[in-house]
């Protein structure tokens, strides 16, 4: 069991923790925070693997994940602010699509 194994298990743990959060929380804001946790998990995995192999691709992937996370946070928070007026941020209340 190398250090990389432990780090990968931890990264998977981060991802699963975030997934649990998305599935368990009803508040949209908390689900966004959980989503951040979910994204952090793979980021750790990429960096750890890149460091293990002495390769720069890990960091490059992290940059891409970061870009994704930034866009997601921006949109997610905008949606949250938009919905909060109607539902108080409860994602369960928003079950219908409406143009």
């Amino acid at each position: 069991m190398t250090a990389l194994n432990i780090l990968l298990v931890l990264s998977a743990g981060l991802f699963l923790a975030g997934l649990f959060g998305v599935a368990a929380r009803r508040t949209l804001l908390m689900q966004l925070i959980s989503l951040e946790v979910m994204l952090a998990g793979p980021a750790l995995g990429f960096i750890a693997a890149g460091a293990h192999h002495g390769s720069i691709e890990g960091s490059a992937m992290f940059i891409l994940v970061l870009g994704l996370a930034a866009a997601e946070v921006a949109l997610g928070l905008a949606i949250y602010l938009h919905m909060r007026r109607a539902t108080g941020g409860d994602s369960d209340a928003a079950t219908r699509l409406r143009g």
């Binding site: 069991m1 190398t2 990389l4 194994n5 432990i6 990968l8 298990v9 998977a12 743990g13 699963l16 890149g50 460091a51 293990h52 192999h53 002495g54 390769s55 720069i56 890990g58 960091s59």
Partner: peptide, 18 residues
């Protein structure tokens, strides 16, 4: 995850700083 990822040994790395 624990037994699948944590159990197997990863190959030897090349710890050169990037």
């Amino acid at each position: 995850v624990i037994f699948g990822i944590g159990g197997g040994a990863m190959g030897e790395g090349d710890p050169a700083p990037a």
